[in-house]
Design a protein around this nucleic acid. Sequence first.
DNA 1: TAGTGGTCTAGACCACCCT
DNA 2: GGGTGGTCTAGACCACTAC
Lengths: 246, 246
Amino acid sequence: MGTTQLETAPEPKYWHLKTVLSDALDSEFAVGEILPNERDLAARFGVARATLRQALEQLELEGRLQRRRGVGTTVAPPRVGVAADAEHAWPGTTADDWQPVGSAEAVPPAAVALLLGTGRDEVVHTVRRTRSSNGQPVAAELLYVPAAGVPGLDLPETASGPARALAVLGALQELRLEGHDRAVELGSARAEDAKQLDRLPGAPVLVVTTRYFADGRTAAVSVATYRADTCRLTFGEGDPVGLLAS
Amino acid sequence: MGTTQLETAPEPKYWHLKTVLSDALDSEFAVGEILPNERDLAARFGVARATLRQALEQLELEGRLQRRRGVGTTVAPPRVGVAADAEHAWPGTTADDWQPVGSAEAVPPAAVALLLGTGRDEVVHTVRRTRSSNGQPVAAELLYVPAAGVPGLDLPETASGPARALAVLGALQELRLEGHDRAVELGSARAEDAKQLDRLPGAPVLVVTTRYFADGRTAAVSVATYRADTCRLTFGEGDPVGLLAS
DNA sequence: TAGTGGTCTAGACCACCCT
DNA sequence: GGGTGGTCTAGACCACTAC
């Protein structure tokens, strides 16, 4: 045929929609503003609701929108930069933003047991903590501490959740941190984490796995799940994008 | 009613499906194995194809599956740990796994210009690189270098893409790196990155934004997008989960 | 050309929040 | 109770890959 290039790339509708909406958010909406509901928006753009939702999902993933069942869709504020350096996360330091929730004894998942170097069915201390920033929950952590890692820890059987957590954390404070390593990957929130993060199960999260070394062994392993929609993990001296406020 | 707790939590079908499939992957499938196609799977579980796809999407997000149009769905290998430390990423060092692709002059996006401290319409050097691991592309990087950051850089107008990239990188090698900071967040692959990563546009990626300091100023800003489905970013001494191989 | 995953539709019902 | 987003269905067609 004599046509030169016609119809180069049939861009998916939801992709185009996302671009249009994204531009509209920049120019016509303020942070916190409520968007029209999904049915109206779909009608306005002449697409099925499912197609519109595909675009909204992408925008939510990118932290541009916030959707809450029964409420509506609002324009999200810029992502919060949360410091994820070891200094800010080592359980042995008293950090205002980390809040102990509970503690128990349990057999860790196989992957964690490998990191800890504990036996297959060996029981370890677990501590649950939540981290908040500006009043919003940003992370839920599950900390695994082998009993051998905190010698001299004497737990009264009667200790309730938070009190028990504080006891374990206190024992960690006695240790001198010698090193750590860390990995960041994408995951989806398990039911328990989702509740603490005020999200639905399956919500995208950044999973930060940290191994802490002390006394020549692995003293603790932390698995922290951060809300991927609202958080930007920062490492190092400054806050790369936090300058936006200035 | 005399019922005590009936119907505690009507778990979504796709969520339950995901669990069932996940268990099946662990016990009945080997890495690389091909799953039945979506229509058959949906029929087998007695759900609509869209519902099945919702479960598959989650599993792909978690790096358990790999789906390719026209081919099928396969069981994904465990995520690759890729070192994301400054030492491994500073453009000034010769790294085998980073491959220069091209280079040009352009006005950076506003957010990047802020990090660089350049003017609103100031032109900077850009360099594109790709990173591979085990033959698979894992990251696409766009590097921004203000002209002031690389004094003495004399670019022949005739230089082609990769050659020009090497010239800019070579100029960076003259600098002494004084520090850096870094942020990690979730994003979706833009068209250009998606192509280099062998993924569809919109695919989930981990965006690593790094600011490099030299000579008392910001010498370069790197925006690297890593495939979120196949990568685990590692920081620090070891590879937290890499031991699994041992 | 046959088979796969990707996109899209037009409905329906459910769970949740607010008033 | 009325409105929102979340889940689910049963279809259709398209883009891509491999044979």
